[in-house]
Computed example of a mutant assay.
Amino acid sequence: MRAEDFILKNYNSSIENGSVKWSSPSNIALIKYWGKRENQIPENPSISFTLSNCKTITEVTYTKKETSDFSFEVHFEGKKNEAFEPKIRTFFERVEDYVPFLRDYHFKIDTANTFPHSSGIASSASGMSALALCLMSIEQELGADDTLDYFNKKASFLARLGSGSACRSIEGELVVWGQNESTESSDLYGIKFDGDLHPNFKNYQDTILLVDKGEKQVSSTVGHKLMFGHPFATQRFAQAHDNLAKLKTVLESGDLKAFVKIVESEALTLHAMMMTSIPYFILMKPNTLQIINKIWEFRVANNSNICFTLDAGANVHVLYPENEKDSILEFIKNELAAYCQNGHFITDHVGNGAELIKK
C-alpha cells in the first residue's frame, strides 16, 4: 500500500465524545534498525520479537470542540505530564493528513507502562503504537469501514510516524519492517514474518536485565542521525540486508546456534556504530560487559542456546528457548541479577501483539 491509501476522506464529525483503550507491547529487534531517512523511513530492514509483559496501556477520551487547533492533555501513570506534550504534538502534526479528525476533538491521553520508563526498554515503541491504535479505533467510531488488514497496516503506518520501531509492535510474533528482497516487507509499516516459524522459536523467552534504569545517554533520534556520514554506514546497511536473509532461513530451520551468532553480532554491531560515530558514545556499562561474559561462559559450560541482545543502552535482553527456561532463570537469579540495578530484572516472552481493552 502507498501512503496516500491511508488518507481518511470521509468520517462522521457529529459524534460528540467517546473513549477507547489499547494495550500494546514493546518489541526487541533481532536485526537492528539504525539510521533513517525523511518521514521515518528506515535505512535498513529490521525484524523483531514482539514481547508480551512489557507493554503500554493507553486510554484516549475524546470530546468534540469548536476551535481548529490541536487540543490534548497527557497523563502518565495517573499524573499530568507536560514533558510528553511536544512529542505528541509532533506526532499529531505528522499524521493529521491521515487522521484529520485530530483537530475536531480534545483528547485526554491516559497512559502507563508495565516497565520503567526510559530504561532501555522500547517505551516509545509500545507508547506510540498504543496511541496509534487508539486513533484507529476512534476512526472506526467515526464511521470508517476498516478491515482488520487495513486497520493493522494503518495503525503500524501511524505508529511509525511517532517512533520508527513502534510500527513493529502492532502484531506478533515476529514483525519485519523495511523493504528487502528476502521477505514480504514495506518501508511504510511492519508486516508479520511470512516464513514458516520453526517450533524452536515458539514462545521464545526474553529476560531483561536492568543494568541502568536511568534516562538513556543518547536518545534514539540523536543516535539515528549519527548514521549520516558515518564511515561504516553503507557497509552496515548492506550487512543488515544480508543478516535478515540469513535469519529467515534460521527461523524456518530451527538452527539455534546460527540464531545466537546472528543476534549477538547484530547487537554488538549496533554499539560499534555508536562507538565509531562523531560524536562517539559508549552506551554499555561495566556491568553490561560482565553480564555478556557470564552468558558466554554459561553457554559453553552448559551447551546452552542462551544469547543476548542490546538496544541502544546498557540493559541486556537475555534470549533463550522455552525448554531451557528453568535452568537459565536459575542462572540469572544466582549470577546475573547481582549486576542489575537493585537486582531488578523482568521476565518476558514472545507475544501476539496489541490488544483492544475498551471501545
Results as ranks from 00 to 15, higher is better:
residue 242 D to L: 13
residue 31 I to T: 09
residue 201 F to P: 01
residue 315 N to H: 04
residue 195 G to N: 08
residue 12 N to P: 04
residue 26 S to G: 06
residue 17 N to F: 11
residue 242 D to Y: 13
residue 77 E to R: 09
residue 42 P to N: 04
residue 194 D to Y: 07
residue 86 P to L: 07
residue 315 N to T: 02
residue 258 A to F: 11
residue 203 N to T: 11
residue 12 N to E: 11
residue 26 S to A: 13
residue 295 I to M: 06
residue 67 T to N: 13
residue 329 L to I: 15
residue 25 P to A: 10
residue 27 N to G: 05
residue 177 W to D: 06
residue 42 P to K: 00
residue 286 P to T: 09
residue 321 P to Y: 02
residue 291 I to R: 02
residue 336 L to K: 01
residue 181 E to H: 15
residue 75 H to L: 14
residue 320 Y to V: 07
residue 308 F to D: 02
residue 222 V to P: 09
residue 254 G to F: 09
residue 319 L to I: 12
residue 136 M to L: 10
residue 115 F to D: 00
residue 286 P to M: 09
residue 196 D to F: 08
residue 320 Y to R: 08
residue 17 N to W: 11
residue 326 D to V: 13
residue 5 D to W: 03
residue 204 Y to T: 10
residue 37 R to E: 15
residue 79 K to R: 07
residue 302 N to G: 08
residue 136 M to I: 06
residue 240 A to M: 08
residue 316 V to A: 05
residue 230 H to F: 07
residue 90 T to E: 14
residue 115 F to A: 01
residue 170 I to D: 01
residue 225 K to F: 12
residue 220 S to N: 04
residue 143 G to A: 11
residue 239 Q to R: 14
residue 294 K to G: 04
residue 75 H to W: 14
residue 338 A to V: 13
residue 214 G to Q: 05
residue 127 G to L: 01
residue 293 N to R: 13
residue 79 K to L: 07
residue 191 I to E: 07
residue 224 H to Q: 10
residue 150 Y to Q: 05
residue 304 S to H: 01
residue 234 T to K: 15
residue 120 G to N: 02
residue 150 Y to L: 02
residue 94 R to D: 06
residue 79 K to H: 07
residue 31 I to G: 04
residue 68 S to V: 15
residue 200 N to F: 07
residue 231 P to M: 10
residue 343 G to S: 10
residue 201 F to N: 03
residue 253 S to I: 05
residue 106 H to F: 14
residue 203 N to R: 12
residue 3 A to D: 13
residue 229 G to R: 10
residue 235 Q to Y: 14
residue 329 L to C: 14
residue 74 V to L: 09
residue 334 N to L: 15
residue 166 A to K: 00
residue 212 D to E: 04
residue 349 H to V: 12
residue 199 P to A: 08
residue 333 K to P: 11
residue 301 A to R: 08
residue 135 L to N: 03
residue 246 K to Y: 13
residue 238 A to K: 12
residue 107 F to Q: 01
residue 261 K to S: 13
residue 49 F to E: 03
residue 111 T to L: 05
residue 350 V to K: 11
residue 27 N to D: 08
residue 218 V to H: 01
residue 224 H to K: 08
residue 280 Y to W: 12
residue 264 E to K: 11
residue 36 K to G: 03
residue 76 F to R: 00
residue 203 N to P: 08
residue 75 H to Q: 15
residue 232 F to V: 13
residue 141 E to V: 12
residue 330 E to D: 15
residue 201 F to D: 05
residue 209 L to I: 06
residue 166 A to H: 01
residue 38 E to L: 06
residue 280 Y to G: 12
residue 164 G to E: 04
residue 300 V to D: 09
residue 132 A to K: 02
residue 39 N to S: 14
residue 69 D to R: 15
residue 302 N to V: 08
residue 152 N to C: 08
residue 288 T to L: 10
